[in-house]
C-alpha cells in the first residue's frame, strides 16, 4: 500500500486511482470484520474523534460515530446551531476550541462549500469532509464505490447513471470524480435546471430523459430532491418531477436486467423514487450502502491516523 498522500480527506477530485483502490480494499476488509462480529480493535485507542456537524445529519454522524468506536477512539459529537448570529466566526472560533482540546480526527459537515478546507488550515487535527455545501462528500462516494464493486466485481467499464438534482448534490460531485477516475462511464440525468453548468467537462455524459440515460446502465444512482428546490421554482411540482424523473419499475426496465439501484438517503418516496423499487431486494442495495458506510469510514479513519502517526515520526 502506498502511504495516503494528504493530511486530510477534503475531496476526491484529484485523488489518484491507487489511493482510491487502497481505501476501498481496506474498507472491504473492515466490512468482512464487521460482519464477523469482531469489534473494538484498539487501533485508535487514546485518540479523540470529534464529529463537528453544522448541519443536521443522523445517518452520517452515526456512521462516523460507530466507525470511530469500533476502532477504539474516544468519540465526541458536537452539533453547532447554524442559526448562530455569525456562522463564520463560529467556524474559526470552533477551530481554536478544538485545538485546545487536542482533537486527533475531526469530521466536519457544513452547509457551505469549502468550510472543511477553511477549518483544515486552522486546526491541528486531520480533517474529514463529511459533506460541505454542494462541493463534495468523499466518504459517501467511497461507500457507493465499495457497494458497486461488491456487486459488480469491479468498477472499470461500468455504466453508472446519476439521476436527479445533480446541481445541489455534493454526493453526485464526489461520485463523478471517483467513478471517472476509476474508468467508469458516468452519465448524469436530470432536467437542465438541476444540472450544474458545464457538468460535461467533468467527464460525464448528459441526459435530460430517463429513458436514454438509463439505457444499458449497470448502476442507477438516485439523488434526493430537496423540497426547497421546488419552492425555488427549479421544478414545477413533485408530481411532474416524479412522472419524468422519479425512478419506477418502468423506467428501471431501461437499465440492464441486473442493474442495481442506489440512493444516498434519506429518500423522498414518491418524489425521486418509487417505494416498489426502493424496497425491491433484488435491485435495491440501499441498505448495503449504509452498512458499507461504516466500513469505509473505518478505513478512512485508520488511513488518516496512520498517516498522522507516520508524519509525526518523520
Amino acid at each position: 500500500m502506498l502511504p495516503y498522500p494528504h493530511r486530510h480527506l477534503l475531496a476526491l477530485q484529484g485523488l489518484e486511482p491507487p489511493y482510491i483502490a487502497d481505501l476501498l480494499d481496506l474498507a472491504e476488509s473492515y466490512a468482512l470484520l464487521n460482519r464477523s462480529g469482531k469489534t473494538q480493535r484498539d487501533l485508535l485507542k487514546g485518540q479523540t474523534l470529534i464529529n463537528l456537524f453544522f448541519e443536521d445529519s443522523t445517518r452520517t454522524r452515526t456512521s462516523f460515530e460507530l466507525a470511530g468506536k469500533r476502532l477504539g477512539a474516544d468519540v465526541i459529537n458536537m452539533s453547532v446551531s447554524t442559526s448562530s448570529v455569525n456562522k463564520g466566526e463560529t467556524l474559526l472560533d470552533t477551530a481554536s476550541t478544538l485545538n485546545a482540546m487536542h482533537c486527533d480526527l475531526l469530521v466536519v459537515r457544513h452547509a457551505q462549500s469549502g468550510a472543511p478546507a477553511l477549518l483544515s488550515q486552522k486546526v491541528d487535527a486531520a480533517v474529514i469532509n463529511a459533506g460541505d455545501g454542494t462541493h463534495e462528500h468523499p466518504t459517501q462516494a467511497l461507500l457507493d464505490a465499495l457497494t458497486i464493486r461488491r456487486h459488480k466485481g469491479q468498477l472499470e467499464n461500468l455504466t453508472v447513471a446519476i439521476c436527479g438534482d445533480v446541481l445541489h448534490s455534493r454526493v453526485a460531485r464526489s461520485n463523478i470524480h471517483l467513478l471517472t477516475t476509476m474508468n467508469c462511464r458516468v452519465r448524469v440525468v436530470g432536467p437542465p435546471a438541476l444540472l450544474p453548468a458545464e457538468v460535461e467537462r467533468l467527464g460525464v455524459e448528459v441526459f435530460h430523459d430517463m429513458k436514454g440515460g438509463l439505457a444499458g446502465a449497470d448502476v442507477v444512482m438516485m439523488l434526493r430532491l430537496q423540497k426547497e428546490r421546488m419552492a425555488g421554482g427549479l421544478v414545477p411540482s413533485a408530481r411532474e418531477y416524479f412522472r419524468f424523473y422519479g425512478l419506477d419499475a418502468a423506467k428501471l426496465a431501461q437499465a440492464k436486467p441486473d442493474a442495481i439501484v442506489m440512493h444516498p438517503g434519506p429518500m423522498n418516496r414518491g418524489v425521486e423514487i418509487d417505494s416498489a423499487v426502493a424496497d425491491d431486494p433484488t435491485r435495491s442495495v440501499i441498505g448495503e450502502q449504509v452498512e458499507m458506510g461504516v466500513a469505509v469510514r473505518m478505513a478512512v479513519l485508520d488511513t488518516l491516523s496512520r498517516n498522522t502517526r507516520r508524519n509525526a515520526r518523520l
Binding site: S113, D132, G133, T134, H135, R173, A197, E198, R201
Partner: peptide, 15 residues
C-alpha cells in the same frame, strides 16, 4: 462565474 470551475467547487454561479 457559472461554469466548470464553480461546478467543481460547488459554488453558486453567476452566469
Amino acid at each position: 462565474t457559472e461554469g466548470e470551475l464553480a461546478t467543481r467547487l460547488g459554488l453558486p454561479g453567476i452566469p
